[in-house]
Computed example of a mutant assay.
Amino acid sequence: MTENTEHTPETPENQANETDAPAEANAPAPEKTAEDALAAAQAEIAELKDKLLRAVAETENLRRRAEREKQDATNYAVTAFARDLLPVSDNLRRALDSLPEDADGNETLKALVEGVEMTERELLNNFEKHGIRKVDPKGEKFDHNLHQAMFEIPNSGAEEGTVVQVMQVGYTLKERLLRPAMVGVAKGSAPEKQDHVDTTA
């Protein structure tokens, strides 16, 4: 017993369809035009240029930061040592301030005073050589960057906010504060309020 199978007769149209299908599937992609290639190349160049500029800028920033850190390390290497010497300067000044008024009459005491004064001057001169400067702000306007207010003095006769007493001098090291000056600040009385009189009538 044989099976009947339907057989489509071959026609010129069928043969054309069979040959056209694989041709469309294997058709090559359209070639890029010269304008497209140029645009792509320019875009790539712009991207690479941007990356290069960013890398150069970052390298320059790193170089500057390294130089700044090196300079800071050089300038402020003596910070801890300088702070340790500040009490020495304070004690020399206290010794001079505590001398009796008649010290000039005693030759032995006078020689001692001169020696202490010379020591203090030498110490302050060496401080100056290394960028350490004294902050003695009496009579100056209070500056919270350099001074530490310990108390206020009312009715001092000075303008409000003026340093009228220095309990302990401060010091700076180049651009940095080593120790703030401890001060008393003038406190002025608040101006009395005056009633506003309308003179326009």
Rank of each mutant, 00 (worst) to 15 (best):
V113T: 05
E18I: 06
N106E: 00
N26I: 09
T108G: 12
S89K: 11
A111L: 02
E67T: 07
A46C: 01
A37I: 15
A57Y: 04
N14V: 13
E31T: 14
V78M: 05
A27M: 07
A66T: 05
G105R: 02
P28A: 04
L52D: 07
S98I: 12
E35A: 09
L85E: 03
R83A: 13
I132D: 02
V88K: 05
P100W: 04
K134L: 15
E122D: 11
V56C: 15
A29D: 07
F81M: 13
A29V: 01
P9D: 05
L62K: 15
A41W: 03
A25G: 13
R68K: 09
P30G: 14
A34G: 10
P137Y: 00
I132M: 02
A29G: 04
P87V: 01
V135C: 10
K49I: 07
Q15R: 08
T19C: 15
D104A: 06
K138G: 04
E10S: 07
E3Y: 01
A57K: 10
A55D: 08
R133L: 14
E60W: 08
E117G: 08
A16K: 09
L48T: 03
L62I: 15
V78W: 02
T74W: 14
L85K: 00
A16P: 12
L38R: 13
V78G: 11
A43K: 10
T79E: 07
L112Y: 09
E24I: 13
T11W: 00
A73I: 11
A77Q: 03
A95K: 10
T33W: 05
L86T: 01
N17Y: 10
R133Q: 12
N61H: 05
H7I: 08
E128R: 14
A73T: 14
E13Q: 03
R83E: 12
A27E: 12
N4P: 09
N106G: 01
E107V: 08
N125Y: 10
N106Y: 02
A103W: 03
E44S: 06
R94V: 15
L99I: 03
K70N: 12
N91V: 14
T5M: 13
H130S: 06
K129H: 01
E24L: 07
N26A: 12
A29S: 06
E114P: 07
T33E: 07
A16W: 04
I132Q: 03
P100C: 01
N75S: 05
R83I: 13
D97P: 09
K110F: 10
A21H: 03
K129Q: 10
A66H: 07
A16E: 04
E31Y: 14
D84E: 15
Q15K: 15
T33Y: 11
H130F: 05
P9H: 00
F127M: 06
A25D: 11
E3R: 07
D90Y: 06
L85A: 01
E13H: 10
E35T: 05
E6F: 12
P28R: 13
A73H: 09
A21F: 07
N17M: 12
L109R: 08
V78Q: 12
D136H: 01
A66P: 10
P100L: 08
H7T: 14
D97I: 03
A23C: 06
N17V: 02
T119P: 02
F127T: 02
E117P: 07
F81G: 10
A27K: 05
